[in-house]
């Protein structure tokens, strides 16, 4: 394997809460190869979005900061990079599509101007060139009559179209990495499918690597090559998507997958009414306590889980899991 495009090493992100500083993401390491699609899965509040923001140097500071670790993009460490260096990378090399297409477009400019502006900032192209490029991008993301649509203001577009425009803005500079933070959460299911088709199609055309953040296992199964499961700011399982769906190892992952209702389920097999993982994600204040963060909610928790935090251990074929059960099985 060649050197990865993006390599995150022992990342720690801390937030100041009152006088204390708490790490909300700890010991996070992962790689992203060129053209690869990585899924990051987890419940709300487990650190997915803040990890994504840290890749662009956008952790809100104060109160947050990257307190340890490295984010190596093509060998360059983004953690210590200056604002100018970051601005050259943002939108140009690494782009992001946000959750909320309804509010993520600037209401006072037409969508064409917003796409063109990004091209002008990064390529220094002329107004006319940038405008042509904007229309080309609108066409690429499948917006009908792009010449007219380019003159529309965001409020004149539907949610799905706005998300397409967001994608057009993110891709106008043909970035190497596209981070999509729950890009379809705010859209309805039919539009969701269209957006994902678009992602796949554009990935073929542009060849960008995608980091897809979601809590939808179905989406992960369809879209990604590799999955990383996060819980309470840590990576607890990682592996190729097929193995992950067929044979989840961590009790949390198993829980997530059992939460999906299946068509094949007969009503008598159906759990009552649907499976759910009891309890909630620990609040940031509760992090850092000894033991596995998932132990209070885990059906298999042992004495050891409450005192000692399991380290991530390799279990072959690019898979890794952080759970004491693995050792039990191996022993």
């Amino acid at each position: 394997m060649s050197a990865p495009l993006l390599s995150v090493r022992d990342l720690e992100i801390s937030f100041r809460l009152g006088t204390e500083e708490t790490a909300v993401v700890r010991d996070l390491s992962f790689d992203l190869g060129e053209g690869e699609t990585l899924g990051i899965v987890g419940e709300s509040g487990c650190g997915k979005s803040i990890t994504a923001l840290s890749l662009l140097g956008l952790v809100p500071n104060p109160p947050g900061r990257v307190s340890a670790g490295q984010i190596l993009f093509q060998g360059q460490d983004l953690v210590g990079a200056s604002e100018e260096q970051l601005n050259r990378i943002r939108g140009n090399e690494i782009s992001m599509v946000f959750q909320e297409p309804m509010t993520s477009l600037n209401p006072v400019y037409t969508v064409g101007e917003q796409i063109a502006e990004t091209a002008r900032v990064h390529f220094g192209s002329s107004r006319a060139e940038a405008w042509d490029r904007a229309i080309e991008m609108l066409k690429l993301v499948g917006i009908p009559s792009p010449e007219q649509r380019a003159h529309n203001f965001p409020h004149q577009l539907s949610g799905g179209m706005r998300q397409r425009v967001m994608i057009a803005i993110a891709l106008v500079c043909e970035p190497k990495i596209l981070i999509a933070d729950e890009p379809t959460t705010a859209l309805d299911v039919t539009v969701q499918a269209q957006i994902f088709d678009l992602f796949r199609e554009l990935q073929d055309k542009i060849g960008a690597a995608i980091i897809l953040i979601t809590h939808d296992i179905g989406v992960v199964a369809q879209m990604t090559n590799r999955v990383m499961v996060m819980y309470a700011g840590r990576k607890i399982e990682e592996g190729p998507v097929a193995g992950f769906i067929r044979d989840p190892r961590h009790p949390y992952t198993r829980g997530l997958i059992s939460c999906i209702p299946r068509l094949s389920m007969s009503p008598s097999d159906m759990p009552d009414p649907l499976f759910e993982i009891p309890g909630v994600v620990p609040a940031p204040r509760e992090l850092g306590a000894p033991g596995c963060a998932f132990a209070p909610r885990c059906p298999h928790a042992m004495q050891r889980c409450r005192v000692q935090d399991p380290a991530l251990s390799r279990i072959g074929e690019g898979r890794a899991v952080a759970c004491w059960l693995e050792e039990e099985v191996a022993a």
Partner: peptide
């Protein structure tokens, strides 16, 4: 606002 965050993410300076 979200769009300010979005603009920042595509490399807009202060």
């Amino acid at each position: 606002m979200d769009y300010v965050k979005a603009e920042r993410s595509i490399g807009a300076g202060n």
